[in-house]
Design a binder for these strands. Structure first.
Lengths: 185, 185
DNA sequence: GAAATTTGTCTCAATAATGTGACATTTTCT
DNA sequence: AGAAAATGTCACATTATTGAGACAAATTTC
């Protein structure tokens, strides 16, 4: 049975990633709960957003850490991390948006993300491949990192908007990412 | 000399693409103008956003139409359209976000974008390349279209966040886009 | 099925954002 | 310089959103 708290957080994530200014009323409605109940679980909007951020970071990190550990081959590690992130859907989008915005204003949050060990695992693997000349040497790591994130978002969005069939989704993303960084399998 | 109206619209575009819920106060400040003046030019928030949307659509379409016409070679057409969009910076991001959100809620706006002749020119060119088997046949056109947009955003964002040098920007985007769709030059 | 817990409804106060009028000040144009 | 236009300042009404109390209704737990 899903707890009310979880329902509210999930609803908030779905709402807020599209429209940061959605009212608590709307979030409560999306969660199938009265606004009064939402207020019982979260002191205010900031508290709610903070909770979403924390839960979603945990959720995404967990999924990607598992994916990282699922295979020995560095290429498969990266591929499975990509797939895991896509499967996170709205959760991933939410985290990404929070992180993006923080980049220009909230340095603490950026640091928090930078020091995140999922990112360092990802970087380690990419560097490994770079050193082995298995990907395009013209591109820098920060570019590849940004690209990775945006291809994930594209895949999530493409399914939601109905542009791409759910089956093709991850496949397209992987083909494109491989090509984009010139990965030699 | 830049007109007040233009200053306000530019400021609104910069603010709103990051944070849809920025106050008119903040937008006025960003434009270096009092809130009272902003209200003299725009009846209300909706009017302002509508104006931004229209102006930015015109700006982006113009830049990309020029780029399209700048060369006969289909590949160079696409490349120059990519570059033009990246150069639009905040303007392009703003339009893209408006369009994205509309996808789920505002069908009129979607139609408006769909019927846009810049998009049809782009599609025509991509189809041409697809028929000539000059790009990966596994991918669908809608996927490629989404990818095109998100690589542009990645390039814009990468420079703003300081992750990628301004010189490398367009180059990286083009290398990655080519690779992502398996384009054979 | 009774008690305890959770949630909903209704209400109201506090706050923040918005929109506008009146008038002063500044800028622009000639 | 002086008129005309644009902008700023301040004040105020309106509105939307938020947050919480009081109690009823529903749900869970034992």
């Amino acid at each position: 049975m899903i707890s009310t708290r979880t329902k509210i957080i999930a609803a908030a994530v779905r709402c807020l990633r599209n429209n940061q200014s959605d009212t608590l009323e709307k979030i409560a409605e999306e969660a199938g709960v009265s606004r009064r109940t939402l207020h019982r679980y979260f002191e205010n909007r900031e508290d709610l957003i903070e909770s979403c951020k924390n839960e979603m970071l945990v959720s995404c990190n967990k999924a990607m850490t598992t994916a990282y550990a699922s295979d020995k081959d560095p290429i498969k590690k990266i591929r499975n991390m990509l797939f895991a992130a896509i499967e996170q859907g709205a959760n991933y989008s939410f985290v990404k948006r929070i992180y993006e915005r923080s980049n220009f204003s909230d340095l603490d949050r950026k640091k928090e993300f930078e020091s995140d060990n999922v990112k360092s695992k990802w970087l380690k693997t990419i560097n490994e491949l770079q050193k082995a000349k298995r990907l395009n040497t013209e591109l820098t790591t920060p570019w590849i990192f940004n690209l990775f994130g945006s291809i994930i978002e594209t895949a999530i969005y493409a399914v939601e908007s109905g542009d791409v069939a759910k089956n093709d989704n991850k496949n397209f993303a992987w083909i494109s990412f491989k090509g984009a960084i010139g990965l030699k399998e």
